[in-house]
Design a binder for these strands. Structure first.
Lengths: 351, 351
DNA sequence: ATTAGCACTCATTATCAACGAGTGCTAATA
DNA sequence: TATTAGCACTCGTTGATAATGAGTGCTAAT
């Protein structure tokens, strides 16, 4: 793409209004927008010819394109970008309760990962697109209780109760034989020592702590073994996606193989995770349109995300993925609102 | 439908061969089967005219139908039924490893419900249709350890370790205040007393047991409270479904609103659960074709299921749901084989 | 019982014209 | 100078018509 100073001038008021209206109309109807009917439909007080001139300019500046000669115009990615930007500028952040996210239901979820898959489901259900949630890294999880339960002679179940009241299970295998009573003692010790700390902190201090400890009813060597296995794994954040079937009902997704490219990206979760993680450090809603997601590897898709917090700290990202021609007017507030709900929920639970 | 004795005669050898081949061909091509090309393609040593006569008879008997006059024939549900029956008769049960179900992976799953959702995923992935699994009722789950962990002043986490080495969590809320040490004691008691018994047995005997008990370090009243909350819930089996998006890629599912009726049934999980439960008492693969699933509420779909066991006891059902025109030659062995794998796995894990 | 022959049906495909909504360009206008 | 009317042109969509071809049922001959 060559840089052309003429093409980079800011839009005047009328052009801006026209562009936004065109994008809006196209999102609504999925039909290329033509000058004559467009002027009529929106009662612009200019003639179709003038409209054509404006459209011509907007096309030259890269905001619009024609599917073929003698067809109306449709937005380019740049056009959508302009639309979304002005949407975000004038955004009121007062979206109502009509989204009806069932907080009570979420609170009752016991299993940590289930909370997030529930949120994913809700996002997809309300948006009628695919919901996507990046869970918090376990490293940041603050632990309230640590319990060890003997399963077999050499298998131990580690149960972490998090500050939010959810539960993480992990099975570990050791070589030496340990009695349940020993484990009770060790559990007590761990809980009293590390209650209130995050997993990453525990990981750091546990080993030095253990080595320094003298009097114990439990062999230090075995304790170290257990601790190592229990806390040493680097706990990645997880990526939940749900509602892909919604995308399959969207015509522009099904036509051609847009679908395939999208499904590929979705299956290669690491790529998507990387993209999501970039939103982690940003407050507010972030949109990625078309090629912005990942250079031209995915076409015709947009990703709307926002980070969610525990307290003041951004811990994860949630959002929606769908066709570029999605209803940003609804999706952006939905994501924004969901982010706040989830933040509130998690913050409240961890008190 | 009127009963017509002529229509109920058994098929002779040639008719049988023709019918099976027609069904087979239609499953392969999704094109109505016409006499002339059909005779050619499969080198039948009869003339198209004779083939027409046979087809005419088969149509009269209800095995075939014409989408419109002057089109070839396609199978009716009854036709599919005949095909599947003869498939099952000659079925060798020696299907190979090419299905590549990742047993090792499954074994590592810690959370009980995750095992079954993994199995569901695999079924859908391999069959390219929707996988469906009815999990065992928790009542039948044999418990190996029972642990109680105090969360809050009045919240307790119940952890059941099952014989298969998986874990069930449940949060319970009581009114009185209990210390963790008390809970340790109670956990020990519960484990020593009920290790090896199924939840249903525990439920029955726990209360009388507790009431009869005299000397205890733990107030009997509170223990009863906890036990009641912990074990009293009637634990239904769960229905996992995955891979619906596969169905959306199948043309005959998308055309018309077949999809809707199917999705409705899938969302009303109770209906489907009832249907699945009927397969529980049957050994071997069970197929339900078209209207057989549930009288004409779902059209054009088939359900292939088999029960799976722990030891000798059927505990759950797994299978595949897809269009009536599915590849039974592959799906039936897949389901059969998966059933055996899962049975082996669960049986082995519970030793 | 089988088959050749024949008239008939009907979905599919190709062709072609008419239509309409769109465009760019030019010249007249406010 | 910006706007607009007018005009020739493009091109996807629609609808009618005809040709094609794969299929059928029926009848009579083998």
């Amino acid at each position: 793409m060559t840089f052309d100073p003429i093409n980079e001038r800011p839009l005047d008021e009328r052009e801006s209004a026209v562009l936004s209206t065109i994008v809006h109309d196209y999102i609504e109807t999925r039909k290329p927008v033509g000058s004559r009917s467009f002027v009529q439909k929106y009662s612009f007080s200019i003639s179709p010819a003038t409209m054509r001139n404006i459209m011509f300019d907007l096309e030259n500046m890269g905001f619009l394109m024609q599917p073929h000669t003698s067809a109306g115009r449709i937005p380019t990615d740049k056009g959508y970008r302009y639309y979304v930007n002005s949407l975000l500028e004038n955004y009121s952040y007062t979206y109502g309760k009509e989204l009806s996210i069932n907080e009570e239901y979420l609170k009752r979820e016991l299993q940590l990962d289930k909370i997030f898959s529930s949120i994913t489901k809700m996002l997809s259900h309300i948006s009628k697109l695919a919901g996507i949630v990046l869970t918090p890294r376990l490293d940041f999880t603050v632990v309230k209780r640590i319990e060890l339960v003997s399963l077999d002679n050499n298998q131990i179940l580690l149960i972490l109760v998090t500050r939010t009241g959810t539960v993480i299970n992990k099975k570990i295998t050791i070589s030496t034989n340990v009695t349940q009573d020993n484990l009770y003692d060790f559990s007590k010790y761990l809980t009293s020592e590390f209650c209130g700390y995050s997993l990453s902190v525990i990981k750091e201090s546990l080993f030095s702590e253990l080595r320094g400890r003298q009097e114990t009813s439990f062999k230090t060597g075995t304790a170290l073994d257990i601790a190592q296995l229990a806390f040493n794994e680097n706990s990645e954040s997880e990526l939940c996606i749900d509602g892909i079937e919604n995308l399959l009902r969207i015509p522009e997704m099904v036509e051609e193989n847009r679908l395939n490219s999208l499904l590929n990206i979705i299956e290669e979760k690491n790529i998507l995770r990387g993209i999501m993680e970039m939103s982690m450090s940003i407050d507010g809603v972030k949109t990625l349109i078309g090629g912005e997601i990942i250079d031209d590897k995915v076409n015709g898709c947009s990703l709307v995300t926002t980070a969610y917090k525990i307290g003041n700290k951004n811990v994860g990202v949630l959002g929606v993925i769908g066709p570029t021609r999605m209803d940003y007017d609804r999706v952006v507030p939905l994501v924004e609102y969901s982010g706040r709900i989830v933040s509130d929920l998690l913050t409240q639970m961890s008190k």
